[in-house]
Simulated assay, not measured.
Amino acid sequence: MLQHSPGRNGGGEPPDEEELEPFGGLMRYERQVPIHQVSYYLCGEIQAPQFYTELFYTLRSASETDLIYLHINSPGGDFNTGLQIINNMLASDAHVVTVLEARAYSMAAFIFLSGDELVVHDNCQLMFHTYSSSFAGKGSEQLAEVHALGNWFEKVTTRLCTPFLSPTDINHILQGSDLWMDSDEIRRRLGRIKHPKAAPRKSATKP
């Protein structure tokens, strides 16, 4: 903001450029933009992807001033649907806040970790484990599919869960162990990696 001094002869003419001085020596620029806030509730089992097309569209069409909350209480479910949700979250211009409200197991845990901002209620749980699948076809085809899925799952887990999970954690999961943690452990890990939110729900902006 610039302060105009009177014209040369005290008249109302605008001053020359050199007569303009900063107000208080500090320039202030202000812009007000509307914030569009949306909440989704991912409750129950994650189903086929056609049930989530509205969420996909909202994430893809959102602007950088939009705020999208994804409240999670899920045992997991369809791995491909979960990956499509995550890929849309990561591609979104919006600020996506994942809120752990009870449990996030399996694929739901991956979705929780993919938020721009993570909020953890008290008395919650995360659980990570390896994938489950069924195979058909000739023995050689089944072996090839097992190998391909195993490599794919390892890459996805490492990409989405590091550094929240250590290499040792991931190795145990790939070998078939289930990894459980409560709210206190989740916050401890998030605090260790300096994630934007490792705080209880009440500290976040209310949706």
Rank of each mutant, 00 (worst) to 15 (best):
L70H: 03
L26G: 00
I170E: 08
E54P: 00
D66W: 09
Y131Q: 00
V99P: 03
P15W: 03
T162D: 11
E45F: 04
G176E: 12
N123S: 06
K155E: 15
I193T: 13
S166F: 14
S5M: 08
A62G: 10
M89Y: 09
I173P: 01
A148T: 06
L26V: 15
T130H: 13
A148H: 12
T205H: 03
G137L: 05
K194V: 05
N88T: 14
L59A: 11
G24N: 12
Q37C: 09
L165N: 04
G82R: 01
G24D: 12
C43M: 10
N171M: 09
K138Q: 05
K194S: 13
K197D: 07
W152A: 13
H4D: 00
N88A: 15
F51A: 13
E13M: 00
K202G: 08
L83H: 12
T162K: 09
H95C: 10
L70C: 05
N80W: 08
E21S: 15
S92C: 10
E54T: 15
P34K: 06
N73M: 07
S134W: 05
P207C: 06
L55S: 07
Y69C: 07
S166Y: 13
P6V: 12
V146S: 10
D116P: 02
L20A: 06
V146H: 10
G176Q: 09
H172Y: 10
L126V: 01
G191Y: 04
T81R: 08
E45V: 07
D178Y: 11
G115I: 02
S39H: 00
A94M: 00
G11A: 08
L26W: 10
L67V: 03
V97F: 00
H71V: 07
K206D: 03
M107E: 07
G115L: 06
V96W: 03
E17V: 06
M127W: 03
L55N: 07
R192E: 10
Y29C: 05
M89G: 04
S177Q: 14
A109G: 05
L26D: 07
V96I: 15
H129R: 09
I193S: 08
P6Y: 06
L20P: 01
A62F: 09
G176D: 12
D184H: 11
W180T: 04
D122K: 09
A62Q: 07
E45Q: 05
N9F: 14
F23Q: 07
F128I: 03
I35W: 04
L55P: 08
M89W: 02
V156H: 03
R187L: 11
D182M: 02
E141H: 14
G191C: 08
D93S: 11
I173T: 01
R60C: 02
E54K: 15
H4L: 03
L59R: 09
A102K: 08
F51N: 13
G139A: 08
H36C: 11
F110H: 04
E145I: 10
L165T: 04
N151Y: 02
T130L: 03
L67P: 01
K194W: 02
F153G: 05
L70K: 02
A62M: 11
L149H: 10
C43T: 13
S61A: 14
V120M: 04
R159V: 11
S166K: 14
L83P: 09
S61T: 14
Q50P: 06
H195V: 06
C161M: 13
I85V: 15
Q37P: 01
D178K: 14
E17F: 06
L67E: 04
G137D: 06
R159I: 12
Y41M: 00
